[in-house]
């Protein structure tokens, strides 16, 4: 699986693309990243789940665009100069699928020491534990490693998400 990061496995560093969604830093397994795009025109899909409410054209391929901020209950300001679209390949019910996610800003590709990655706490977290694979640490900063497989799992990411619009 593309998102096969194993927190706590000694000695295994994770090469990750770090990006910012509002005030939080997220890390996506660098191996799953296909490309990073500037913002392109987004086509709204009427009546679709708001989490994957858009479609974009990635080199002639029509790719669903997801907004992780919605799942994590964040504000969703309109795109600005720093906004990027990260195209990743995920495993969706056993099929490799290309999806895109919005990022307020893309930082860098860096190693996250396996030792610093911890299992997401079941309580005391603002987000649904099942969407978080683990929490890594870099300096003083916490990095959220989202569980992409589950986030996109068919029929899972939807109506139960609490929306906070800002």
């Amino acid at each position: 699986m593309r998102t096969g990061i194993h927190p706590g496995h000694a000695g295994r560093a994770m090469t990750a693309l770090t990006l910012r969604l509002q005030d939080e830093v997220f890390a996506i397994d660098a191996e799953s990243v296909r490309e990073i795009l500037d913002v392109v025109p987004i086509t709204e899909v009427p009546n679709a789940n708001a989490f994957v409410g858009g479609l974009i054209n990635v080199r002639g391929r029509i790719v669903p665009l997801a907004d992780l901020r919605l799942l994590f209950g964040m504000d969703r300001p309109p795109p600005d100069v720093n906004t990027r679209i990260v195209v990743i390949e995920i495993d969706l019910d056993g099929e490799p699928t290309i999806v895109a996610v919005l990022a307020d800003r893309v930082h860098d590709v860096s190693e996250i020491e396996a030792a610093t990655i911890e299992q997401a706490p079941k309580i005391g977290m603002r987000w649904r534990p099942k969407y978080v694979h683990g929490i890594g640490k870099r300096g003083d900063e916490f990095i959220i490693i989202p569980e992409m497989g589950r986030i996109f799992a068919t029929g899972d990411a939807g109506p139960s998400v609490s929306q906070k619009r800002g």
Binding site: P41, T43, N49, L55, N57, I62, V63, A66, F152, T154
Partner: peptide, 27 residues
């Protein structure tokens, strides 16, 4: 015609999507 991904399998009214001359996507 390009088919929609599984993520949009539940969306009614559309049979697929296409890319227009200006590069944008239309349902």
């Amino acid at each position: 015609i390009k088919s929609l991904s599984k993520l949009h399998a539940d969306v009614e009214n559309f049979s697929g999507a296409t890319i227009l001359g200006d590069g944008t996507v239309a349902l």
